[in-house]
Amino acid sequence: MTNSHDHDHDNELDPMTARVRALETILSEKGLIDPAAIDAIVDTYQNRVGPQNGARVVARAWSDTEFADWLARDATAAIASLGFTGRQGEHMHAVFNTPQTHNLVVCTLCSCYPWSVLGLPPVWYKSPPYRSRAVMDPRGVLEEFGVRLDKDVNIRVWDSTAELRYLVVPMRPAGTDGLDEDALAALVSRDSMIGTGLAEAPE
């Protein structure tokens, strides 16, 4: 509470909070949810999963060609081997950027996103402009993110579904030969794994 006048007022629930409470009440009375499990889910997605997981996958792929091959063949299993598994039964597919092809991920349907490796999506990923423009004008979208690609680089747009989610493996930056996986992972931003960014150059 930041408002000093609040102290002598009654409690108020805003309408959305009251509505969610009503749903929780109904669902737990019917035995369909366990409030403790709901709290655990919130904690997981607020605090535990995030792009650091995906950065770990990319750094391993950059460091270990066998792992990279596995990731290309069966991303779901390769990613699970690092302890990151999806809870929606979705399959993962890793798409690798090359000097000829840049990959960009969108969900035109709603907001499907590889939660287990990137956490929950940023607001722009869920917005109508991104969802439609990433398909129609990917080059323009990339420029808005400050990514300018040569004209001869193809852009492949991957439309996520409830069953299949994509992870972009950005190109390894130059000058990173001696770096270990931790140092490499620090160069891998969330956006670089959606395709709206590139991996950063080492300092």
């Binding site: 959305m16 509505r19 709901i38 889910i41 919130v42 997605y45 917005s127």
Partner: peptide, 29 residues
């Protein structure tokens, strides 16, 4: 079919995926 000509919303610096607690609860349900 919407949003085709409109700008992307700006990046929000707050790293929390939820703007308000009810959003987190609704998500988790």
């Amino acid at each position: 079919d919407r949003g085709a000509d409109r700008p992307l919303p700006p990046e929000i610096a707050d790293p929390s995926p939820f703007a308000e607690p009810w959003q987190a609860q609704a998500f988790a349900l």
